[in-house]
């Protein structure tokens, strides 16, 4: 009895979670220019507008440059930190890791304003590069969280066996450790990519005159005429992020299977 009422609640909760997303394609294919019911008819015009929009194309290109750079940088920094925190004991480790993981619990506006103040103070011009710096800072803790799981499921005796067989530190890392954590690295890279692609307030503060995808979306949301196109854009983004997430999840599971760890589920 209790089971079924909980199940009903879970269903309603999923409706609440998915309602805003399900409505995206509904309005993206609706020919009415006003976002309201009743729907008018079917159209692909909004998608045509979307793909013909050059400002949007530029914003997307900028966002992709930022997201790919962020993904590479934060995953690299994440590998160092995850390896250090799972393999070595050193004094002050809690404090060091606390500082590195701090962006997870810092309101984004604080990260944005402190970086803005310091970048302007040292006279660095605001550009895509400064956004990359900010996004890397924000994405690194997430990368570490994913990579920690990958590194902590490593069996240390494999590494010791490699040393005993005459491998050096670096060749052991390359031949033994790296292949085992590769799925974790891929899923961390995809996650950092997604975080960066979607991030608004830090980009808004640090991009200067440049435009990223979220900055462009935010600027367009003020104009009712542009909303149907934004709905089409949202539909494309949802599809893209589901594909990315499914890929990340696939690699995460494969990584767990490789190292023989138990699946504890979830990304975070």
């Amino acid at each position: 009895m209790k089971f079924s009422s909980l199940k009903g609640y879970a269903f309603l909760y999923l409706v609440f979670l998915y309602a805003p997303i399900v409505l995206l394609p509904v309005f993206a294919f609706n020919s009415g220019t006003i976002i309201a019911f009743p729907l008018k008819g079917f159209t692909l015009d909004w998608f045509r507008d979307l793909f013909a929009n050059q400002t949007l194309g530029l914003a997307l290109k900028n966002s992709l440059i930022i997201a790919v750079s962020t993904s590479i940088l934060s995953t690299t920094l994440g590998v160092f930190a995850a390896r250090a925190s799972t393999r070595f004991k050193f004094p002050g480790k809690t404090g060091v890791m606390g500082l590195i993981m701090l962006p997870l619990v810092l309101p984004e506006i604080i990260i944005a304003s402190s970086l803005l103040v310091v970048l302007l103070a040292v006279g660095m011009p605001l550009s895509l590069f400064t956004v990359i710096l900010g996004h890397t800072l924000m994405a690194t803790p997430y990368a570490i969280a994913v990579l920690n799981a990958a590194f902590s499921s490593l069996d240390r005796s494999l590494e010791e066996a490699a040393y005993d067989l005459g491998e050096t530190k670096w060749s052991t890392f390359r031949l033994i450790i790296l292949p085992l954590v590769t799925p974790g690295i891929i899923s961390s890279a995809l996650m950092s990519f997604t975080i960066s692609l979607d991030e608004f307030i830090v980009a808004f503060s640090l991009a200067g005159k440049e435009t990223t995808l979220p900055i462009y979306i935010f600027s367009q949301l003020r104009f009712p005429k542009q909303i149907p196109m934004i709905m089409a854009l949202g539909t494309c983004l949802v599809v893209a992020s589901i594909v990315l997430l499914a890929t990340a999840e696939y690699f995460r599971r494969r990584g767990l299977a490789k190292t023989g760890a138990k699946d504890t589920g979830g990304f975070l």
Binding site: L14, L17, Y18, A19, P20, I21, L23, L24, T194, D198, F200, P214, I217, F218, L221, I230, L233, G234, L237, V238, S241, I242, L244, L245, E249, G265, G266, F267, L268
Partner: peptide
């Protein structure tokens, strides 16, 4: 996985919805 999917789709658009 089902619960985390909406979280990974555009924040701005989700808010606007």
């Amino acid at each position: 996985f089902l619960i985390t999917i909406p979280f990974w789709t555009s924040y701005l658009i989700r808010v606007f919805q």
